[in-house]
Design a protein around this nucleic acid. Structure first.
Lengths: 343, 343
DNA sequence: TTGAAAGCGCTAACAC
DNA sequence: GTGTTAGCGCTTTCAA
C-alpha cells in the first residue's frame, strides 16, 4: 500500500512563525511589519520584508480575519453559478474594480440538505469574519438583519427592511404578455419561476393582469412551474405542449426556462416562432445567442450588480439601507410572431 | 455627531459559546454534536440541536477551517470576473453540483499592487485553510507546487508539473487565420492577447504559421497588443485601423478583444464584415449575441471547467496531476466575409 | 458521557 | 523597538 502513497509536496504552507524564525525576530514584529504598523526599526523592517519575499509568505486570510474586524472582502452569495447570477457578479466586480475590496463569490447551497435558507446559512458562516459586507442574490427568505451590511438583489420580499435592488418585475411581465397579445395570441401560457421568490409572483401577476386587461380569461391549465431552472422547466413545457389545446405562445418567467421551452418545442417538432411564440425574462447573454434569438424582458443585470455594490459601499460607510428599482425593457427578437391562422 | 451613529443591529453573531451556555453544556460538547461525533447522550444531543436551531447558529467557516484540515470547499481563483472565467466557473459549478464540495470563487487581484503573481498570493492566502483544492484560471507565472491540489486552466506554461486543462490554441489560431485567407484576405492583422500567457503566444504562433503556409509575409505593423481586455484593445484596434494601409481582416486573440475591435471599427464608420472582417477566440455567449455575430474559435468552456473540476476531485482522491487538452472549433458567423475588391 | 485545556495563524495590548 | 501575552471561534486530545 505504501507505494501508492504520494509524498506531500515539500512546500508546506509558510506561516508567520517561519518568517519570524528565519528573520530572527518575534512573530509580533513580523505582523507589525506586514501590516505597516509603525514603531519598527528601518533595518528590522527591511530584513523581515526580505525574508517574506524569499519565503514567498502570504498571510492567511482566514487567520487574519479572525482577529481583524476588517477584511476588505465583500461576499457575493448565490444559490448557484448560473448566467443570471454570473452577470450580476460581473456588474459587482466592475463596480468594485478600483476600491480596496476583493470579491468572494460563494455558492453555498450545493451540498446543503435543505435548499431554502441557504443565504442565511452562508451569511452566518462567512459574515462577521471573512467578509465585511454581502450581496445576496435571490434570497429565499425574508432575511433578518444580519450582523454585517447586506444588500439583496431580487429579494424574497419586496423592499422592506433589507437594502434591495430589483427591477420592475410586474411591469415587465405585463409588457411581455401584452406583446404576445398585440401579436394576436389568445392562448398564452406561463411557465412560472421559483414561487418562493417575490419576483416570480410579480411576474405571474403581471401576466394575469395583462390577460385580464385584454379581456382574456386565464386557463389554469396554462400555468405550470419551471422554478427558474432548465431541469424543472422541461416537464413544465412538455405538459403545456402536450395538452389537447396547446397554447400558441408561452411567457416563461426567465430566460433559462424560455430557452428550455424552445428546446422542448423543437424536440416535439414545433417551429419557433411559427408554431409557438416564446418570451423570456432577464436577457442573459445566451438569449441573444440562441436561434432564433429570444424575445425577452431585459433586466439591466450589470447595472443591477453595480448598483448593489455601490449601495453596499455606502452602507459600509455608514449609510442607511435603500431600495433601488431599475426599469425592465422589452427586447424583441425572433422567437415571437403572430399565431398561425388555425388557432 | 453621536446622532449619526447607527446602532448596531441587535443580532450579533451567534457563536458556539452562546449555544453552549443556552444548552447548559460545554463548548466541546456542542462541537461534538454539530460534527456528529459519537459518545454523546441522545438527550444531550437533542437538546443542543434544538438550541442550535432556535438560535439559528451556524459554525463559522473561518474558525472551523483553522482547526480542520478539511473544509469541503474548492476555490476557483480568477484574475477578474469576466465572461471567459465566468463560463468556466459555470462548468466547474455544474460538475461539483452533487458532490460534497462548495465553491468559493475568488478574484484576488483587484486591489493588489502588482498584477502578476496574483494566483500565488491568492493560493497562499486561501490554501491550507479555507479551501481543500484550487482551480486557477489563467495563472500568470509557472506555479510552484502548492500545498494543496491545484489545477490550472489555460496556464502560463504549457503542460508541465502542474495539472492543466487547455485547448489547442495554436491549431485554433491557425484555423482562424486560414479561414480569413480562404476568404481572400491578404492583409490580416492580429490583436495579441496577454503576452505573459502561453495561450496568447500560441495563438500568435498559429497566426504566423498560417500566414507563412499561405506564402504571406507578416507585416510587423499588423500585430498589436490587446492584452485580452477590451480597455487595452481599444488602442490596439485604433492603431491598426488608422494605418496608411489598414488590414482587411483582424484576428483578435480573444472574443472580448474582437468585440472591441468591432466597436472601434463601427465608431470609425467601417462596416463589419463589408469593410473589415473580424475573428475572435473563445466563443463566450456575448459573441453570438453581437451584431453581426462574431466568427470565432470555440473553446468548450463549460466542458473545460467541468474537466478541471473532475481532475481536481481525482487529485483530492490521491491521483496524480494530469493534462487535458480539448479541441478548438471554428464557428462561422457574420463578422467575416471576402474583402472588398479595392484591397 | 462530558468538560478542561491546548492550539490552528494571526493581531493587538501591554510590558520590557 | 521589540517581545510577551491573550484571545478570535472552533476542534480535539485527554482526563474526569
Amino acid at each position: 500500500m505504501s507505494d501508492t502513497a504520494v509524498t506531500q509536496p515539500s512546500s508546506e504552507r509558510v506561516t508567520i512563525r517561519d518568517v519570524a524564525r528565519a528573520a530572527g525576530v518575534s512573530v509580533a514584529t513580523v505582523s507589525k511589519v506586514i501590516n505597516g504598523r509603525d514603531g519598527i526599526a528601518e533595518a528590522t523592517s527591511a530584513r523581515v520584508l526580505r525574508v517574506v519575499s524569499d519565503l514567498g509568505y502570504e498571510s492567511s486570510l482566514v487567520a487574519a480575519s479572525m482577529r481583524h474586524r476588517q477584511t476588505n472582502h465583500i461576499g457575493v452569495l448565490v444559490a448557484e453559478f448560473e448566467p443570471f447570477a454570473l452577470q450580476l457578479l460581473r456588474g459587482v466586480s466592475s463596480a468594485l474594480q478600483d476600491t480596496k475590496y476583493n470579491i468572494l463569490a460563494y455558492a453555498g447551497s450545493v451540498s446543503a440538505g435543505s435548499h431554502t435558507g441557504w443565504e442565511r446559512r452562508s451569511l452566518s458562516r462567512l459574515g462577521g469574519t471573512l467578509i465585511d459586507g454581502a450581496i445576496i442574490v435571490t434570497p429565499t427568505v425574508a432575511q433578518p438583519a444580519s450582523s454585517i451590511p447586506t444588500v439583496a438583489i431580487d429579494p424574497h420580499t419586496g423592499p422592506a427592511g433589507l437594502a434591495t435592488v430589483d427591477t420592475d418585475n410586474r411591469g415587465g411581465a405585463r409588457t411581455a404578455t401584452e406583446h404576445l397579445i398585440a401579436l394576436g395570441h389568445r392562448r398564452i401560457a406561463h411557465v412560472r419561476g421559483r414561487t418562493d421568490l417575490e419576483s416570480a409572483q410579480l411576474r405571474e401577476r403581471g401576466y394575469r393582469e395583462a390577460l385580464e386587461a385584454a379581456g382574456l380569461s386565464c386557463d389554469p391549465a396554462l400555468v405550470t412551474d419551471g422554478g427558474y431552472r432548465p431541469a424543472e422547466s422541461t416537464s413544465a413545457a412538455e405538459e403545456l405542449l402536450a395538452a389537447e389545446q396547446p397554447p400558441t405562445a408561452i411567457f416563461a418567467a426567465n430566460d433559462l426556462s424560455a430557452l428550455e421551452v424552445i428546446r422542448v418545442a423543437a424536440s416535439r417538432g414545433l417551429r419557433v416562432p411559427e408554431d409557438l411564440s416564446v418570451v423570456g425574462f432577464d436577457d442573459i447573454p445566451e438569449s441573444a445567442a440562441s436561434t432564433p434569438g429570444l424575445t425577452t424582458i431585459r433586466q439591466p443585470l450589470l447595472q443591477m450588480g453595480a448598483a448593489a455594490a455601490h449601495m453596499l459601499l455606502d452602507m459600509l460607510g455608514g449609510s442607511e439601507p435603500e431600495h433601488t428599482r431599475l426599469p425592465a425593457e422589452l427586447i424583441v427578437r425572433g422567437s415571437t410572431a403572430p399565431p398561425q391562422e388555425d388557432s
